[in-house]
């Protein structure tokens, strides 16, 4: 064949692939740039630490920041142990039969359920049935259930990637099954589990629909004092000041978006640092 032809094809292919990548990255960069450009002016100490004033047109967004932190912490506190233990059961204990395959399929499908459905579910079960009311507890549990499939799936993959020889060696030295999991499997699966947690944190912090009916307050003049209180939360607050309240300065809206974005990035960064600490030990 014609060598020149092949070379031209090569050039077209690499240009096309590069173009697609740029096309994907470009919107992200533009969104970040616009939010940063329009929002940075609103960011100051008062904005981050003060209560909203004068119908939210002035003052800060501190209650919404705090609320989102509470909700994310609550969701992770609930979903991480439950998800990891479920993954351990599925990988290490469950026999590969019809039932366990159904369970795995169900968990994967749960990840695809729209978030508003989780919101309705949370309203039905936590707010009304368990009578937690519209509260931090109900909202955190709802978000927790939403991120469970992400954490379970990541934890399963992490556990499955631990070499089988670690288990066999541990068992062959007379360790019990639980000792083997605790000392020879789980420590090596932690980085992968944390990756799942990072993804979960991002989702829990950013979703509006699950907290809409279960916890989020339109406006609260005080900070929550117990887990049965309502809180404001950043994504819902952003929705409120963007569509429900007239006369909010644009910079406040973009500033709020910037804070939400930074918060998620910082939480992720924290988890990434923890993960890299564990990864350094990983040698096989």
């Amino acid at each position: 064949m014609n060598l020149k032809n092949v070379k031209t094809q090569e050039k077209i292919a690499s240009a096309l692939l590069f173009g697609c990548t740029v096309l994907v990255v470009l919107p992200v960069v533009i969104i970040l740039a616009i939010i940063l450009y329009k929002g940075i002016a609103a960011i100051n100490w008062e904005f981050l630490t003060a209560m909203p004033k004068k119908g939210m047109t002035q003052g800060g967004i501190f209650p919404a920041i705090l609320g989102t932190l509470y909700l994310v912490a609550g969701a992770v506190l609930f979903a991480l142990p439950l998800g990891v233990l479920t993954a351990i059961y599925l990988v290490e204990y469950a026999k590969n039969n019809y039932l366990s395959r159904i369970i795995k399929l169900a968990i994967v499908n749960l990840a695809g359920v729209p978030s508003v459905v989780y919101g309705l579910f949370g309203l039905g079960i936590f707010v009304i049935f368990f009578q937690f009311g519209v509260s931090i507890l109900a909202g955190a549990l709802t978000l927790g259930i939403m991120i469970l499939p992400v954490i379970i799936t990541a934890s399963r993959e992490a556990l499955e990637s631990v070499p089988q020889s670690f288990r066999i060696v541990s068992l062959s030295l007379g360790a019990s099954k639980w000792q083997t999991i605790r000392h020879s499997v789980l420590p090596h699966a932690l980085p992968g589990i944390l990756t799942g947690t990072i993804l979960g944190i991002g989702r829990a912090a950013g979703e509006t629909a699950p907290i809409l009916f279960t916890v989020a307050a339109f406006y609260l003049p005080h900070l929550p004092t117990s887990i049965f209180d309502q809180v404001m939360a950043l994504p819902y607050h952003l929705y409120v000041i963007s569509t429900q309240v007239p006369g909010i300065p644009e910079s406040t809206r973009y500033g709020t978006a910037l804070v939400l974005l930074s918060l998620v990035l910082m939480l992720n960064l924290f988890a990434i640092i923890v993960r890299s600490k564990f990864r350094k030990k990983k040698k096989w």
Partner: peptide, 10 residues
């Protein structure tokens, strides 16, 4: 038991 390939734990 000692296996065919060395199996140190990490």
């Amino acid at each position: 038991i000692v296996f065919a390939l060395p199996t140190p734990l990490p």
